[in-house]
Design a binder for these strands. Sequence first.
DNA 1: ATGTTGACTGCGT
DNA 2: AACGCAGCCAACA
Length: 115
Amino acid sequence: MGKQPKDQSNFFADVYEVVKLIPSGRVSSYGAIARYLGLSRGARMVGWAMMSSHYSTEQVPAHRVVNRQGLLTGRRHYPTPTQMQERLEAEGIPVKDEQVQNFDHYFWDPSRELL
DNA sequence: ATGTTGACTGCGT
DNA sequence: AACGCAGCCAACA
């Protein structure tokens, strides 16, 4: 068995796929997505992929991905620091002070919800 | 090839 | 409960 062609960051593509599966009105976390992809501690990678998603032509709802505390840690990578929050609120997710309210209720875990 | 960094997370203090 | 340190993977200089 030779080595597998690494393609070009097909890891990013996998992350995009999972993120695109997050239903509107729900949020997920970097760690949950990483774990679903088999990376027990690749949460930072997921964040990296999200940042790259801005340069991708694919539409990835990166605003639905927050950290495990429900904090909008990625908001500073948006054109305006409030865009991420506004987008979540537009989907019916209450956000106060950079934090998703009732986070546990809106949390969507690919390993749990998705099979 | 080596070192640094990053939209994180878990555990120890 | 809050803070700090270490682990993990991939891109970049």
